[in-house]
Amino acid sequence: MLQFSFWDILSNLLVATQWTIVLSLIAFFCGGIVGLILLFMRTSRIAPLEWFTKIYIEFFQGTPLLMQLFLFFFGIALFGVEVSPWAAATLALTFWTSAFLAEIWRGCVESIPKGQWEASSSLALSYIEQMRYVILPQASRIAVAPTVGFSVQVIKGTALASIIGFVELTKAGTMLNNATFRPFLVYSLVALIYFCLCFPLSWWAKKIEGRLNVAR
């Protein structure tokens, strides 16, 4: 029988951690891009676009991420396309992230005084130009702290990809536990690794937030 030493367990977990990081990064960046598009649609004052984004955000914020993963995993398969857990997890996490980021950023955009909109529109800027040159540069300053804070949620969200069979940190933990029967040690290490990934981000988010409050 294969024996696992402490270092074997740890090194296997660290290998799997890479996939947690890769999945988090992809979900965060793709989610950011989709979220930005949603933000433009949500603040466009074109009714159908606004309704679409409202329903989209309501759906992704109002259902469990786990259900979304299942829906993507089994839903895409209905079209006769073979879906890997990797593809399903990436898609589900991207859309989930985009809904939250769009809503966070909308709050930041709406906190910009109305006069800024009026002044820029009286300078004959189009909606896209207003956003690009006037609103977003100001809103992005406020947006940094909650966005960094949300990245912690994304990292924690990737843990659910283990359930549809994507081998990342949590799944590796489960597999190692099945092989070694040392659940206390394995899950402590898994939790510790997640903590090491998330805590610096949480701390950073808090720091930026504090700095913003001083500036005001």
Partner: peptide, 8 residues
């Protein structure tokens, strides 16, 4: 707050 619920 810094670990996933499923791991807890």
């Amino acid at each position: 707050r810094n670990t996933p619920f499923i791991v807890q």
